[in-house]
Design a protein around this nucleic acid. Sequence first.
DNA 1: TTGACAAATGTTAGCGCTAACATATGTTGA
DNA 2: TCAACATATGTTAGCGCTAACATTTGTCAA
Lengths: 318, 318
Amino acid sequence: MTVSRVLREPDKVSAKAREKVRAAIDKLGYVPDPAASALATGRTNVIGFIVPSVTNNVFSDVLSGVYKAAEGTEWQIQLGNSRYSPLEEERLVRTFLSQRPAGLILSGIDQSSETLALLKRASCRMVQIMETGPDPLDMMVGFSHLDAARAATRHLIEAGYVRPGFLAARLDPRTQRRLEGFRDVTRRAGCLSDERIVTTPKPSSVTLGGLLMADLLARAPETDAVLCNNDDLALGALFECQRRGIDVPQAMGICGFNDLEMMAAANPSISSVRTFRQEMGKTAMDMLIAALRNPDNPVETVDLGYQVMARGSTARQA
Amino acid sequence: MTVSRVLREPDKVSAKAREKVRAAIDKLGYVPDPAASALATGRTNVIGFIVPSVTNNVFSDVLSGVYKAAEGTEWQIQLGNSRYSPLEEERLVRTFLSQRPAGLILSGIDQSSETLALLKRASCRMVQIMETGPDPLDMMVGFSHLDAARAATRHLIEAGYVRPGFLAARLDPRTQRRLEGFRDVTRRAGCLSDERIVTTPKPSSVTLGGLLMADLLARAPETDAVLCNNDDLALGALFECQRRGIDVPQAMGICGFNDLEMMAAANPSISSVRTFRQEMGKTAMDMLIAALRNPDNPVETVDLGYQVMARGSTARQA
DNA sequence: TTGACAAATGTTAGCGCTAACATATGTTGA
DNA sequence: TCAACATATGTTAGCGCTAACATTTGTCAA
């Protein structure tokens, strides 16, 4: 029992006993068994983190932020990959909950009603990340994809483009909200054309960006700018324009989304909407840890915002 | 006990009892407690996977392969991020081993001697991935980075380039072996120049590729080709050449490493050494599962090879 | 010095499961 | 029909830890 105290509440043990125990631990190479601890306490120090994709740069940045915040703490990350499938997400939530996690980090706010029911019955703390919205399950860290897409669209219009299009792959809920933002602003500006909205359910890639751009030009050759749902597509669109001898930014403006590192390095540099992915992961984990340490902590929703990065690919000369 | 059997060895229970138990499980919503099982059996169904980086595309592809192979099995992945630090890797191995994992997947073959000592004492099965080499701890899946770099260098020379350089960031052990391959082939061909080898310990990025290219051109303006240690650097190098008006592939050949999807989509398309990252993760996990199911399985070392993808960026016209 | 209380340490039982063994039930051939 | 065996089910104890309580030791004021 004193050993258990030395490891978990060293202040409650006298300095003498503490040192004796520590010396014995070192000598014997004792390592506590987390399974026994979990069984006795009914909880673990595992934080489950469910992402829809492990290859998408966006989530690897978020993951890196989560790991950063977890570093040096007693909490362990358990990563789950839902592959954009609500059913798989439900299965993962079930598995994770059976392990009595200390907390959960969930991507997005569009959990299925079954998943929501499971989560509401669960006793652990949780954070929804990637976007903000009404009715948080518990805590929330993200930004408004609708507003971000609106701001990017306004940027295109302000830069002098008058027939903007939209390219998107993988129509996940956040993509759909971005498209909504694009429609919203172009409609008000009187330059919305469904012909110039090209989407596909396929997973995003640079190659696909080129294909979508080609498709867009075939369907609506008058297009003079594209808002791409992510940076891979934007880069692919740029390459496609270059192959066709279309001048970027004069004949075609290109704006990405997320502002991956490569956007600034491209030639021309590509405008994009910067999102704070690593910060999102770090903030979520920090909030979760704070809530676990102090259950009275107020439940927060944090909006990390976004930033339109205007660069060469939309710098049209009048 | 019969319940436990129904869940783990259903064949040993009569069909009648089995159905009765299953009905009760459904009715009561019973979910087994993995911690109690771990305590009773002394093992878990967790497979630890330690990667040096979660943001590097290479490892997210491998991770995706590992998840693919784990899908639908009873095994859980526990991901650890060593951030290229041998000390952190040692700490992670310690933590993972304390959880009595069923297996471990380790990146690379350069574990510290302390880590190796821990691993040799451990009783679980393990796979080293990313490269092949002598003295495997147990199983191994990878390829020869030395040979791959040699082949890429030969490709540059055969394409007609005579003063090739080498760009590398983050000098991890695999990078160093690739550099070795480059030196080896250029030395034999009589075109090795240390002036044309530009490296930095900084983490790799597209921006850095541009900076390294600029550095190389300042130090060795005669350079007519670069082998880049990875595709980010290659893309950055291409952009830098375009900004300077250097013709790729006529005045400068560029070859990357890994063959990320974007390489084929670039303009010009960029030559690269294809590596089988997702297959590597999947194979490692498949081998581990097979070894866990059948401990008599022979211990294997699998070489997945590589493939030089010759594209526009090295298609010099005579 | 003593009682009253706080601080430190010790004792007990049980978390939920499963290995190992014990018992019950079924099945077969003579 | 019954032994002899196979198959199915049940019993027991213990995995290593910690919550809750019990006891001991230390500290302080009267």
